[in-house]
Design a protein around this nucleic acid. Structure first.
Length: 858
RNA sequence: GGGGCUGUGGCGCAGUUGGUAGCGCGGCGAGCUUACACCUCGUAGGUCGUCGGUUCGAGUCCGGCCAGCCCCACCA
């Protein structure tokens, strides 16, 4: 075995072996007694490629699934992709544009074919990248939201919602993207503050004028009223009258509406029902007409001088024209306000009245909220529940129609007599009926993901065995987009059965300064680059190690190197064990040495801790626990201590070989869900087993807990550390052997004289000491021949400092114990702890004084 | 405008029901000791944003303030 582990040499080979052996395939009929464990992957966009966010998300899911699989669950991790309506259509349209074509040149059917062709050729790159990460998904169950089966699910639930009156078509004001030329739901709009200009305009003529303010002057062309507060004395006389609307030759009514804030601006508001959500509501309340003055490209479509101008050109032109008429009052002033942008292309969204399809969310959202409220679905970490409730309890109706060609077409047809009818997937469409041209929001089909992927609406064995799913793992950023909607549709479609038991939310991957990764900052890290250079295991470990519950995950090159080093360390440690004949077969030795008993005892604790941490979604702690056990305890102490019995041979060596094998067998299994590749490579080498993928998950054996052995080794560690410190302070070469006498009589450490000499590079004295340093530690005395004269002054200074600290400790602790209030009110455990502290400090004083006294005069 | 979060050694983070602070990286010093220099050994750095309160005792509970971040939102 080489001294360094080269991930690239093994990862591909192992993944291939796992999949061809079908190790990740779930089988609903395999063992009816085994509990099921299901995770459906948050389907990445078919246009997407693996980024750090996926890598984190998948590392978590893989860890959960691999552990359950080892525990004997029938574990299914179902992979798939989302058709990503707008995103994918944009990609393909861009391709067409290179040939000077638009989708309209092709027509709907040909365009769709083009998208499928694109998908076959260059979509789904991410699936191959998931293999690099080691994702143990069941590839035989891969799904796509546009699959035939999933499409049937979409049509089925649409019809059910339609028939239940939960889907309706209406003329409403919606968010319109003038570039994508489609409606958007509220959450597909991102708000950002933008510098704009607030223009104050005088409406009316003669004595009957008032001033309104707007940041979108061009919308005045579509004004159909001015609104004032009913109690506003300034305008009371105008309410109910008509007022002149400049530039248009129209007059509009002045209406009184509670919504107007008399304190803000002039207290008078222009009302454009067709292009502003507020104004739309005012319009509804007062029966005002909606006058659409901007077309789907956001160009002025109202007749007149401005016709055909883009909204921004029109804005300037309108202001200019008003200025010419002396209508602009005050100065036009800069004004920062929040502007909505299309999530997909960042174009400024234009609110527009149009005929769209909506889901009536109130009853669905209520059920989705209740499922969490009454504990049927648990949100992890629980603190994030508040955000969830805030959302589901205040949800507006969901605009689900998109004016796109890529997606599930709305299954509603219009008849010759103008009637409207929804047809289910298996119904025959009568002659002469035409289908609605819109498609559904991508999130509509993703909302069905937990059950549509399992065969719903059919009653399949998969659906029965694997629904509801066990846990949904995703970033908190997608709680509203996806999770809340899965809850709504899952509960609705599955008659109240929740789509998952636990929603485990993780944070966002960030750079080492906590900054969001983005191309513009230039701080994006490509997980595949890390996998190439450090390996999948190190990449996963880095992410999981930073994954504190609910927190964002900062990553940096150095962290990845540290993880890579850990993997190498594990590699070399196991290599050491193998070179020394470690094996994991047969019973453990009857008689365990104290160090063997100690490491086995520690192992039980770590097994328990790691299991508990993963169970609680605390991956950072799970990583830390294995990391420290493997490195600080197994490598730094146990391997070193084992060298003496291994060299000794005989029964001592044989016992150690068995224990070494036991420790690495369990450690590798414990680490496998987190770092699947290196553990597979090492575990199969160590045990000769087929694969660790389906090896049993380690369970702690309480009989192996040995506090006494842990105590002895702790003493040994303190002794060794103290002597090392002395050697280091005195400038003794660490490799240099030093003659020493150990007076260990009566100490439990007596049995470890050999190991102590080995760890400290001590030899047995052959003659008289030349210069001696005496170190009383842990009740034993170590006499070192220091070869040359030791630095007495430095040692004295150090001991004096320690002595002062010990005396301070004694003073503080004894003072505390003398405090009547403390003794009366503090719990006994705390008091005992302080007594122990006092005792230890007192012993330290005795020891240090003796050491000082033993120092040669110099 | 509403809601939430964070502020602990140089950097990034842990700190369960309150009991005198831990980890990784980095720093400094020493060293190729028969697994590993992607290593080993030793070591220096915090009084926990700030003010006040509760308590025998607070990083850990309560209140004010300062600083930063995020989400939601139809104030022209």
């Amino acid at each position: 075995m080489p001294t360094q582990y080269t991930p690239a040499d093994v990862e591909g080979r192992l993944y291939e072996r796992w999949t061809s052996a079908g190790l990740f395939a779930a089988d609903p009929a395999r063992d009816p007694d085994a509990p099921a464990y299901t995770i459906v992957i948050p389907p990445p966009n078919v246009t997407g490629s693996l980024h750090m966010g996926h890598a984190l998300d998948h590392s978590i899911q893989d860890t959960l699934v691999r552990r359950r699989r080892m525990q004997g669950y029938e574990a299914l991790w179902l992979p798939g992709m989302d058709h990503a309506g707008i995103a994918t259509q944009n990609v393909v349209e861009r391709e067409l544009k290179k040939d000077g074509l638009t989708r309209h040149d092709l027509g709907r059917e040909a365009f769709q074919e083009q998208v499928w062709k694109w998908k076959a050729e260059s979509g789904g790159r991410i699936l191959g990248q998931m293999k690099r990460l080691g994702d143990s998904v069941d590839w035989s169950r891969e799904r796509f939201t546009m699959d035939e089966g999933l499409s049937r699910a979409v049509l089925t639930i649409f019809k059910r919602l339609y028939d239940d009156g939960l889907i309706y078509r209406a003329e409403r004001i919606i968010n319109w993207c003038p570039r994508c030329l489609t409606a958007l739901s509220d959450i597909e709009v991102e708000h950002a503050d933008r510098e704009g200009e607030l223009v104050s305009i005088r409406y009316g003529s003669g004595d009957d004028t008032l001033v309104v303010a707007t940041t979108r002057a061009e919308t005045m062309l579509g004004d159909t009223a001015v609104a004032v507060h009913p109690e506003d004395e300034r305008y009371k006389h105008l309410v109910g009258t008509e007022i002149e609307l400049p530039l248009t030759g129209r007059t509009i009514p002045v209406v009184a509406d509670e919504h107007v804030d008399p304190e803000f601006g002039t207290g008078a508001v222009k009302v454009t029902p067709a292009h502003d959500p507020n104004d739309f509501e005012i319009g509804q309340r007062h029966g005002l007409p909606s006058l659409v003055v901007l077309d789907e490209h956001a160009k002025v479509c109202a007749p007149g001088d401005f016709h055909g101008l883009d909204r921004y050109e029109a804005r300037a032109a309108v202001v200019e024209a008003l200025r010419a008429q002396g209508r602009i009052v005050k100065e036009v002033r800069p004004y920062e306000h929040s502007v909505g942008h299309c999530q997909r292309c960042q174009t400024v969204v234009e609110p527009r009245v149009s005929l769209q399809w909506f889901v009536k969310v109130a009853p669905l959202a209520k059920a989705a909220g209740d499922a969490v409220r009454d504990g049927r679905v648990q949100i992890q970490p629980p603190e994030l529940s508040a955000r969830y409730f805030a959302w589901v309890d205040n949800m507006h109706d969901w605009c689900i129609s998109r004016q796109l060609w890529w997606g599930h077409r709305i299954p509603v047809w219009y008849g010759p007599e103008g009637e409207e009818r929804c047809f289910g997937p298996d119904e025959e469409i009568p002659e002469g009926w035409t289908q609605d041209g819109d498609v559904l929001d991508t999130w509509f089909s993703s909302a069905l993901w937990p059950f549509s992927t399992l065969g719903w609406p059919d009653d399949t064995p998969d659906l029965r065995r694997f629904y509801p799913t066990s846990v949904l793992v995703t970033g908190y950023d997608i709680l509203f987009f996806w999770v809340a909607r899965m809850m709504m549709f899952g509960l609705y479609a599955m008659d109240g059965v929740e789509p998952f038991k636990v929603i485990a939310l993780h944070g966002m991957v960030r750079d080492q300064h906590g900054k969001k990764m983005s191309k513009s900052f230039g701080n994006v890290v490509d997980p595949l680059d890390w996998i190439d250079r450090y390996g999948a295991d190190a990449t996963r470990f880095t992410l999981l190690r930073g994954a504190n519950p609910g927190g964002d995950v900062p990553v940096a090159e150095e962290w990845a190197q540290g993880s890579r080093n850990f993997v190498t360390k594990l590699w070399n440690a196991t290599r050491f064990a193998l070179m020394n004949g470690a094996h994991a077969t047969g019973p453990l030795p009857e008689e365990l040495s104290t160090t063997d008993a100690w490491i086995l005892s520690r192992l039980q604790t770590v097994v328990t801790d790691v299991d508990r941490y993963i169970e609680g979604f605390d991956f950072a702690k799970a990583c830390e626990a294995v990391y420290h056990f493997a490195w600080d305890e197994v490598c730094d102490w146990y391997l070193e201590l084992s060298k003496v019995p291994l060299a000794e041979g005989g029964a001592a060596a044989e016992g150690t070989r068995r224990v070494l094998g036991e420790v690495f067998d369990r450690l590798l299994r414990l680490l496998h869900p987190i770092a699947p590749f290196v553990t597979e490579e090492l575990w199969t080498a160590l045990t000769g087993g087929e694969t660790v993928v389906r090896a049993p998950w380690p369970v702690a054996d309480p009989a192996l807990a040995d506090p006494a052995a842990e105590g002895v080794v702790a003493s040994l560690q303190r002794l060794v550390t103290e002597v090392r410190r002395f050697r280091s302070d005195q400038g003794l070469k660490s490799g240099q052997r030093v003659s020493a006498a150990l007076e260990l009589d009566g100490s439990p450490l007596a049995a470890y004289e050999e190991q102590i000499r080995s760890l400290l590079r001590l030899t047995v004295p052959e003659g008289a000491f030349t210069a001696t340093a005496s170190l009383p530690v842990e009740g034993v005395v170590v006499k070192l021949d220091t070869v040359g004269a030791i630095d007495v002054a430095a040692e004295r200074a150090r001991l004096t400092k320690d002595l002062a600290a010990a005396r301070k400790e004694v003073a503080q602790t004894s003072g505390k114990l003398a405090n009547a209030d403390f003794v009366a009110k503090a719990p006994e455990a705390v008091i005992n702890k302080n007594r122990a502290r006092l005792e230890a400090a007192t012993a330290d004083i005795t020891r240090l004084e003796a050491q000082l006294a033993a120092l040669p005069n110099g």
